[in-house]
């Protein structure tokens, strides 16, 4: 069984692109539109989280901190979607416990390369 991956983004198109790419590779995907939504939807079988940083209600950094604090998700890989201009955000994300990042804009291959890298 391919692992379940959660994608969190307030942009429906990015969410769609991410989940389309991952489902194509056989992953199960759970979509969430912001941090709060993600925390409500996350399940024990989620093996990886891909999250945007700028989101309403609860942003990505806050989400990472919250996931890390949840029992059972201490070591889960969390990848943040950042843009070139957000170098400082990247640092904040790392400090909050993000595993790595993907710089937007990205291509499906880049996304898959990172997923395979951290899930192996």
């Amino acid at each position: 069984m391919a692992p379940t991956i959660m994608t969190v983004d307030d942009s429906a198109s990015v969410r769609q692109m991410v989940s389309f790419t991952l489902r194509n590779e056989g992953y199960e995907v759970i979509e969430a539109s912001d941090g709060k939504d993600a925390l409500a939807k996350i399940r024990p079988d989620v093996k990886m989280v891909i999250t945007d940083l700028n989101m309403p209600n609860m942003d990505g950094i806050e989400l990472i901190r919250n996931i890390r604090a949840k029992s059972g998700f201490k070591f889960i890989p969390i990848i943040m979607l950042t843009t070139e201009s957000q170098a400082a955000k990247k640092q904040d994300g790392k400090a909050a416990g993000a595993t790595g990042w993907i710089v937007k804009p990205f291509k499906p291959e880049q996304l898959l390369a990172v997923v395979k890298k951290v899930l192996r």
């Binding site: 198109s13 990015v14 692109m17 989101m55 804009p105």
Partner: peptide, 13 residues
């Protein structure tokens, strides 16, 4: 945020 999303998603597609 709205600007940011338009920019990010726009570049992606």
């Amino acid at each position: 945020r709205a600007m940011h999303t338009i920019k990010g998603s726009g570049a992606m597609f």
